[in-house]
Every structure is written in structure tokens, then in C-alpha cells.
Design a binder for these strands. Structure first.
Lengths: 106, 106
DNA sequence: GCAGCATATGCCGGAACGGACATACCGGAA
DNA sequence: TTCCGGTATGTCCGTTCCGGCATATGCTGC
């Protein structure tokens, strides 16, 4: 998994601006992580909008606070599956998801 | 995993019309499998459009023919992650994916 | 200061997912 | 028929992902 590198770099204090296209990521890989980032951002937005704590959302999803934190951080170890399930649990519907997935990052 | 039930029923010759809302699926779960189905259909469409065999697509994705078959069958053991990656490998972009995810099934 | 809550990070065992392979099924061409 | 390219189905085993927990960091009000 290439995305590990990215995480490591960020951990080292770099925090790549916007996204990590300068790494050895194929265009597809880059687009994939951008989608994950978009989903992650939307998840946090939706949660805050509902005035939920990470622990509360976790309960609704059937997960844990730490997982939610990682989701919102777009941690490499969280899958799109989990992000999507969480978004649905947070009240998003298919059309919402479609918009999130389809919209270019900022 | 609830979706297992569905698979079993289909295997038993039922092949639920459209999707399996009559099972003990929460609305969220139902929406989730519908999204997977939509992605699966689009993957097959895209592949055929390119006149690729499942084995060829597998090569581009870095997977195997059997996995591709399962993807297109929306087998419970394939993740959205893999579907999305495969779609990207098949030439879809974010906007395409957004449409697929957002569009109500048929 | 520190107490209390929310969020972040690290780790571990167990479950789910993945590629690979073998094999079965299903057309169509010879 | 038999053969053959394509697709489906089943299993195996290594890897990835998940939930849970412990702990760290951050913030606000006291």
C-alpha cells in the first residue's frame, strides 16, 4: 500500500499541501485518495452539523471513537466501505454521496 | 454480514427483484448494497465498452479474473474500495463515479 | 495550576477481504 | 459431438481492516 508512505511523511511533520500527488502515485491512486479525503471531510461536516461527538457517531455506526477519528483524518487504515457506511449513518443519502464523490476537491 | 443471506437466497433461485429490501436490512444497509450493485453494473458496462475480457481488466487492476467476476456479481466478499479502484482502472473518473453513486437504481 | 470533556494516536487479536488457483458452466465454431 | 475462449463458483491462506482499549494531546472553565 503506497498510501503508507504518505502517512509516514505527514507524521514526520510534512503534511503535504492539499494532496500527495508528488509521491509515486499513479493518477488513479491519487484520485482514489482524493475521494477518500472528500468523504472524510464530509463526514466531519455532517457530524458537527448534527452536534454529535465522535463517540456518538461511533455508536450509530457500530464502531469506536478512535475509528471515527481515523476516518475523519482519512487514515490509510480506513476503507471507503466504512466511510460510506458512516456517512449513511450520519444521515447522508445516495445523492449526497454522489455529489461528494463527484465534486473536484475544492 | 447480513448480505450473506441475500446471496444464499439468490443462489436458491430467488434472485430478488431489484434489491433486497424485504430482508432484515436497515434502510442504510439497503442503500449501501444498492450502491454496490450500481458500481458493479457500471464496471461491467465499462469493461464491455472497452471490449476487455475479465482477465484483461484484472490485469489492469492488479487482480484476478475470479475477483472481477465477483465484482461484477456484486459478491458480498468484494469491497467498495476494490470496486472503485477497478472502475478507475477501467477509465472512470470522479465525476463518473459521482453519477453512478448518486443515481437512483434505474 | 487542574479537572473534565473531546479528539488524536498506538497497539492488539480476530474478522473480513484479497489474489491465486482449480474447476465448473456456457456459448459458439469446427 | 468436441473443443475452446470467456465467465462463474469454491476454497485456501496471507494481508488488510476493524473494534476495543489504553493513552496522549488539546481545550475550556474553574
Amino acid at each position: 500500500m503506497k498510501a503508507e508512505k504518505r502517512k509516514k511523511l505527514e507524521a514526520a511533520g510534512w503534511h503535504v499541501g492539499g494532496a500527495a500527488e508528488f509521491l509515486a502515485l499513479t493518477p488513479d491512486e491519487a484520485e482514489f485518495v482524493e475521494i477518500k479525503l472528500a468523504l472524510a471531510r464530509r463526514l466531519r461536516a455532517l457530524r458537527e452539523q448534527r452536534h454529535w461527538t465522535q463517540a456518538e457517531l461511533a455508536k450509530h455506526v457500530g464502531s469506536s471513537q478512535s475509528r471515527v477519528a481515523k476516518m475523519e483524518a482519512a487514515d490509510p487504515t480506513v476503507s471507503v466501505d466504512l466511510l460510506v457506511r458512516s456517512l449513511l449513518a450520519a444521515g447522508a443519502n445516495r445523492r449526497d454521496l454522489g455529489r461528494v464523490v463527484g465534486a473536484k476537491t475544492r
